[in-house]
Amino acid sequence: MEIKVNQGILSSNERTALENKKVFDENGLFVINIMGSPGAGKTTVLEKTIDILVNSVKLGVIEGDIYTSKDAQRIEKHGVPVKQINTGGACHLDAGMVSKVLTDFRLSEIELLVIENVGNLVCPVEFNLGEDIKIAVLSITEGDDKPMKYPLIFRESRAVILNKVDLIDFTDVDMNSLRTDIKRINPKIEIFEVSARTGQGINEWSRWLLEKVKDKNVKNAVN
């Protein structure tokens, strides 16, 4: 006997993601999901971004890692509330893991919640967390072939941060080709060239992010 099913295998995660989204919206929170390879510089970019935004916007951070709370300890030093999720082996965060730690925050006192996903260029992108936008971090030292090899993350992200541009002279990376490939996959994506180490480009990216947070706050106020 045949049973017609036609049900998505991510539907349970999608349901929880929608519940998270509702909580975020009710509290006027703008939420970003930062994704990228291990070592791309996600945490360092975030640390520099926090230092710029901390006086303009109330922040909260969720750190996702397979093991350890090393990243949460780094973020804590910048004076923002942070919660570490250890997936214990899973290569991505899912909406349920995020939902469980939301009670640890005073959500009504946060305007921007940053979720740093597990370091991985592939898996996290399939699992919505309820975020407003996804942000990809790619370090140029990973090579300019990465967008064409891993297109989905670039297609789904609203912005991409190309980190470690201070190392350009030590690589064979063709920045034009890298930018062209990213724009082919997602013509509407914003591209920021930064060096989290020297601080280059961090201001520009932070200003863009702050605009997004304010846009959502304005919309909430109007509604």
């Binding site: 049973i3 049900q7 349970s12 290569c91 592939v122 898996c123 399939e126 699992f127």
Partner: peptide
Amino acid sequence: MHETALMAGVFDVIEKHTA
């Protein structure tokens, strides 16, 4: 290797439709 998580989703669906 998130195929494990995807397959958990497949088996949730199977369970729901055959339980």
